[in-house]
Design a protein around this nucleic acid. Structure first.
Lengths: 335, 335
DNA sequence: CTCTAAAAAGCAAACGTTTGCGCATTTCCT
DNA sequence: AGGAAATGCGCAAACGTTTGCTTTTTAGAG
């Protein structure tokens, strides 16, 4: 591997000063047409590519953003959400010639790392737990946009959880269901609260009473969905539909229903949340609520880039709508 | 945001030269104990963090690797493979204080980008199509490790596809099946050939004849699996088992079987490949072959780091074993 | 032709580190 | 006590760009 060709080499070959070469590669004025052409020629010929590090040093701009993603089964692994956000972000970044550095690993460490290294101009923090200790540090030290977390007076793009589940529960009500179970997430998590609020909201809107015995809490995995559904389905009268606060729990509920010899959707309608891949491969395929993950990544990244440039964005906080996806797990009551 | 504190600031405060401060932050010898302590003290106090860009400039080392991932439905979106590889890679990288830059987007562009920018010391290219035009360029310009592609005289870590499907088909044979269908991938793709070879291999090993009418090619998506299975299941005699070259096609085959009122596994055993998330959520859950994706990411990254450092790795090409996962879609013949 | 203004190109100082070399000062050995 | 060896630290040159300022060249007007 021979020494890399630098701007000085090109300058020497062209018989000009490095500054002139710099002006042509960056497309700034102040150099004549023929010289410009000659230099481009030499650049191609010798395959010169500017050293981004040297450039970053003087411009004090890395042209790189970081993305903090959680690690662990529930997060990245079962759910396309993070992958989609990542894709959206890298695409939006590439649009403006920025690159994306991925930080993951145990949550104490990755927060520290990104701060320690100073290799990014800004940060996308996706799905951080609200009690994460690194949040205050990060918020203060780095221009940051949070994804899917609504952190007070920070910049974020999130999704309207409450409206999303409200819409889904309304869908069940409109199918004629009057006894609708609810499998929620762990208490005291913001996201659990919002989704429960959506469930209650839909009931209020339609003038339906909610019954405590129809509500149970899981912890977002399949087993807890199975357990919660089993419990709810033993109520009397048995509900004719169940909404689960995520797909994994809905899948658990589906298994519980089968275990009780209930056929879905004839005996029981089911609806989940997240639109994970598996939801379209269950039998029957699961009705659910889809999050605009890719778009969230895009918008978050665009917002971040604006903040990095010091521009004033139209809004520092974006709440995006969800989309209800009706498949075969939800049907009219009593058919 | 005030000006960042530099090594000179610390030097001035400590009353020493920048070189001395440098020596303490990098832990090199040549500075006395009390001065060392004093400087650490000042560093903490003023929250000094070395500028990685300046450091990279002089050391000619970015401490960053790139990872090229394909984009598109079949790839990242349905399959945890890429996410897992990414995780394994970032973890291994972090171990050695390297970071990971993600390149994605249309395949012509991302290859050009990574070369143009020169922001990485090396590259992990995962799941590139073998006819990708950027392969020769990349291989030549950057130290690269290919993941899941066995490129002649390049460094790679891949998985033993042939042995994997051979193992799975042997599993079906051992369950008593003698008529076993095969749904392959598109012709002329390396991966399709290897998997087909595994199917043939298992037959040879057990002295079973293969029947052309039991074999059909899909293109790795669900619909093509459905079509191929339908075709195969119309053979006479009808096979009692089908192996599909990936899970998505196996899921299609499952639907085709249901459509023909065949019950799995009683009337038909089914086995896939990849172990995507959905495979454990179908009804019945799908037997399949699991790829050590996380480990592949790890090993590939470790190999890459060795190459970057100029060390001689024990092996430049690694072929990892798969794991057969038996679920309920495969059972003894005729029960 | 001359004068002037605009265009083209050069100069040199930054950006924040690392590192080889050299000079004091201390420590050790006999 | 004398010299040698070891230690502690400073100096300054890199690393490869960008950019404000100055100088030179060119072109156009009178």
């Amino acid at each position: 591997m021979s020494k890399n060709v630098t701007i000085k080499d090109i300058a020497k070959l062209a018989g000009v000063a490095p500054s002139t070469v710099s002006r042509v590669v960056t497309g700034r004025p102040g150099v004549g047409d023929e010289m410009r052409a000659k230099i481009w020629q030499l650049i191609k010929e010798h395959n010169y590519r500017p050293n981004s590090v040297a450039r970053s040093l003087v411009k004090r701009r890395l042209e790189t953003i970081g993305i903090l993603v959680p690690r662990g089964r529930t997060a990245f692994f079962e759910n396309p959400f993070f992958a989609d956000v990542l894709m959206g972000a890298t695409e939006a970044a590439a649009q403006e010639n920025f690159d994306v550095l991925v930080y993951t690993g145990s949550r104490e460490k990755k927060g520290a790392r990104v701060l320690q290294e100073r290799k990014v101009d800004g940060l996308l923090a996706v799905g951080l737990r609200e009690d994460d200790a690194s949040i205050p540090l990060i918020k203060e030290e780095l221009t940051t946009v949070f994804v899917n977390r609504q952190i007070k007076d920070a910049a974020w793009v999130s999704v309207d959880n409450k409206e999303g589940v409200s819409k889904a529960v309304a869908h069940l009500i409109e199918l004629g269901h009057r006894q609708i179970g609810f499998i929620g997430g762990p208490e005291k998590m913001e996201i659990s609260e919002l989704r429960k609020a959506g469930y209650l909201d839909a009931h209020r809107k339609f003038g339906l009473a909610v019954r405590p015995e129809y509500m149970a809490a899981g912890n977002f995995d399949e087993e807890s969905g199975y357990a919660a559904a089993t419990k709810i389905l033993n109520s009397n009268p048995r509900p004719t539909a169940i909404f689960a606060a995520n797909d994994l729990m809905a899948i658990g509920a589906l298994k519980a229903a089968k275990n009780l010899s209930l056929v879905v959707p004839d005996d029981l309608s089911l609806c989940g949340f997240d639109n994970i891949h598996s939801s379209s491969h269950t039998d029957p395929p699961l009705s659910t609520v889809k999050l605009p993950a890719f778009q969230m990544g895009q918008l978050a990244c665009q917002l971040l880039l604006q903040l990095i440039r010091g521009e004033e964005p139209e809004a520092r906080q974006l709440l995006l709508p969800t989309e209800l996806i009706v498949r075969q797990s939800s049907g009219k009551v009593g058919e």
